[in-house]
Design a protein around this nucleic acid. Structure first.
Lengths: 335, 335
DNA sequence: TTGTAAGCGTTATCAG
DNA sequence: CTGATAACGCTTACAA
């Protein structure tokens, strides 16, 4: 494998001149540049990225820590982030955290090894109690959930507002007994609690009572749990005419579970999800949902991170960006 | 940021001893080890991965080049590969190639920069004509498609056999006019051509004629194209009672398109896919499909790559692994 | 069991 | 515009 030294020797110049050519520095005479480029081609020269990293202290790679890449939602997010990073000449290395707090903290410490120039962290397991742990000396952007008042940039979902809008949409379509299908309810400001808040606000605004029996909490927000719970809800004789599912993934399960139980959507029960994953438009019935504009979120997250990397001052002027959203009306709510 | 030197000074030992502690080398007295560990903790020492990479010539990261991570199929594959790589203490950096030959070659050249210790490449754009370009001096595993006789390890889908089995299943369920929904037909040994071959073999074995009108080729194997084409097939009056879709993704679109056109599945038309993505079990109707055992494929691909990385001899004894498969019978074929 | 010396390949600095 | 020098932080080889 040829090094800069080899190229320099072959071109009859100094290593420094080769370096200048490689990095497009201005002060190189065209003739010299050509000599160097020729030698590089002849020797099939490739930069040694490790050496460059050591010298410059940059890696050109950012970490992306998400629960799992194999879900319609995080898959779409990851794809958008990889594309956005490409525009900044950054590569993306993915860590799957399995939504565990411990693995999320691991991802943070990987960056501390200077493996990544920065980290985009989708916090699911970590909560506000861990805010202190985010005080690190390299660029971090939190994506998706809102750790209120954290020390780093955030790109957040419009969780409360959009959930309120989703629930309101069900109300406007005539639903009066609206269930919410969410994850485990805790004190944390996680997906479930924030979207639950929006749901409650909508009920309240409409003067509808909140029936505890309509709060359906599942262990994991998967298709599997969604389908099972939907069947259970019907079989147990629960009276409901609408379901707000806190993610499209779990909503896909719900549609399936209702079908299993012989319930017609949207005639008997209307269903709305949250995320607008690609599949939603093709389901039978197609799924009404919230579109939080993933591409904008991804773009913004990468832009923020890239800015920090350039500026080299992690903490200053941290920014909160809440994605705009739209309600996408499809067949599952009679649209 | 503390270095090994700093730790050595603080612990009153040499840098080498610190390095030995870090790398769990055997010959360190427990007392010395403790001194060093204490110093490391006190200074919050982190290894500088770039320096280690430069010195060792290894990065601990492998590249994964796939068309896009945001598809049920490649998302699942990526997840499985990341998990498998973790077991070898390898990180995974994802390159999205958009199925273009050029980007696939780019991914190859990134590894030549020694950015990755090895590369798992899902060739879609590259064809047998590019076999020579795979003759590189670092570990590469081709995943998914079969570039016959390539110079590197392959983990291949059971394309022909499984497609034959899928088509045979439709025949066994009573279908006589079986359409195939595939991508652009070319001379390449790509998904479409291999699965088309299996489809034809099954028809032939069953003594069914091959009607050119039943060969439905779409530009991209997406839900969108699948849905549109299914509608067109019905509206044009095409006579068919079964569809073999070369991927589950396109099959999801087909199910939707048939519903749009008022065709009942499986009563009027039976549908089978290929991949067994997670969503398939939850669709309405649930989708019969081929399960090529992604986890085994991913595991095998990573194992092969890790072995090469350890052995440090790229070319020797290249291996071909064809995944086993099963036919998963669900509602879309009346199962 | 521990320490010394050297070098991996690159680029920042500054001198020519 | 080009080049000499040194340094980034680590580990391999060898010496003590």
């Amino acid at each position: 494998m040829a090094t800069i030294q080899d190229v320099a020797k072959a071109a009859g110049v100094s290593p420094m001149t080769v370096s200048n050519v490689i990095n497009d520095h201005p002060n190189v005479r065209p003739a010299t540049r050509k000599k160097v480029l020729d030698a590089m081609a002849r020797l099939d020269y490739r930069v040694n990225v490790a050496a460059r990293n050591l010298r410059t202290g940059r890696t050109g790679t950012v970490g992306l820590a998400v629960p799992e890449v194999n879900s319609p939602y995080y898959g779409r997010l990851a794809a958008a982030i990889i594309s956005a990073a490409q525009r900044h000449n950054l590569r993306v290395s993915i860590e799957q955290t399995g939504a565990s707090r411990e693995n999320e903290l691991d991802a943070l410490s990987l960056s501390r090894n200077r493996l990544y120039d920065g980290l985009i962290l989708s916090t699911v397991g970590m909560g506000p109690a861990d805010v202190e742990l985010l005080k690190v000396d390299y660029p971090v952007v939190i994506l998706g959930e809102r750790i209120f008042g954290g020390p780093v940039d955030h790109v957040a979902m419009p969780n409360v507002d959009a959930s309120q809008a989703a629930t309101r949409h069900l109300i406007e379509r005539g639903c009066r007994s609206i269930a919410i299908l969410c994850g485990v309810v805790s004190e944390e400001t996680d997906v479930t609690s924030l979207r639950l808040t929006g749901y409650r606000q909508a009920l309240q605004s409409a003067g509808l009572p909140e029936d505890p029996g309509l709060l359906q909490s599942v262990e994991t927000l998967t298709m599997h749990d969604g389908a099972r719970r939907a069947r259970e809800m019907v079989e147990s004789g629960l009276d409901f005419d609408g379901v707000f599912c806190v993610t499209d993934t779990v909503a896909m399960g719900v549609l399936r579970g209702l079908a299993d139980a012989g319930v017609r959507v949207p005639d008997q029960v209307k269903v709305i999800g949250f995320d607008n994953v690609q599949e939603s438009a093709f389901l039978i019935p197609s799924l009404s949902t919230i579109d939080p504009d993933h591409d904008t979120m991804a773009q913004r997250a990468v832009d923020l991170l890239a800015r920090r990397i350039r500026q080299n001052e992690p903490g200053a002027d941290r920014e909160e960006f809440v994605s705009p959203f739209t309600v996408v009306v499809r067949e599952s709510t009679g649209g």
